[in-house]
């Protein structure tokens, strides 16, 4: 069929949306260190452990849960995660924008259970083709590093230049190194 985009304007303008949109960083972005001493909210990723939550999805969205991650948006103990009364618990949503890329935190939503959380996430966070896969995680299942400990928690890597290729200057100019 005819190319996508507004049919009333040349198709190239639709492509422009795509290419420009792809470049805007969003979601949990780790900030560059402003000073070597105090690191404002770095977000190192503690290896996520994937646990299948529900595989009954008929909509083709993959499901897994991350048990640990340093995503900072999140659970507060005020938000009940047990489904009581008519208040639905909070879920964190992670979207893989295309094959080969990581799932990225997109935001959160409320849903009564994992199955509905996935569907709500599909409806809310992928209305404009933002993703090819979705994870939902109960907000209170996320363990996060202690922000008050950031000085000590993230101090160790500082100054260990020898972990980086740039430390090794003598080999500069040598091919294939």
């Amino acid at each position: 069929m005819t190319p996508h985009g507004n049919p009333e304007v040349p198709a190239s303008s639709a492509g422009a949306v795509e290419s420009s949109a792809a470049k805007v960083p969003a979601g949990p972005v780790s900030e560059p260190s402003a000073s070597p001493v105090i690191e404002p909210s770095a977000s190192p990723v503690i290896e996520p452990v994937e646990i299948p939550v529900s595989t009954s999805s008929t909509s083709g969205v993959s499901t897994s849960a991350v048990s640990t991650s340093s995503v900072s948006t999140g659970s507060t103990s005020e938000v009940s995660t047990s489904s009581t009364g008519n208040v639905w618990p909070l879920w964190e949503v992670f979207v893989r924008s295309s094959r080969g890329l990581s799932h990225v935190h997109a935001g959160s939503l409320h849903a009564p259970d994992a199955a509905m959380a996935l569907r709500n996430a599909r409806d809310l966070y992928t209305r404009r083709n933002e993703g090819v896969s979705i994870w939902v995680v109960p907000a209170d299942a996320i363990a996060a590093s202690d922000p008050d400990a950031k000085g000590s928690f993230f101090e160790s890597p500082q100054g260990k230049d020898y972990r980086h290729a740039t430390y090794y200057t003598k080999s500069e100019g040598v091919k294939h190194l």
Partner: peptide
């Protein structure tokens, strides 16, 4: 919508 939210929450609790 209260009864709908209650129903979904009750269903989730039962399933759990």
């Amino acid at each position: 919508g209260a009864w709908v939210r209650e129903a979904a929450a009750a269903y989730a609790a039962k399933q759990a």
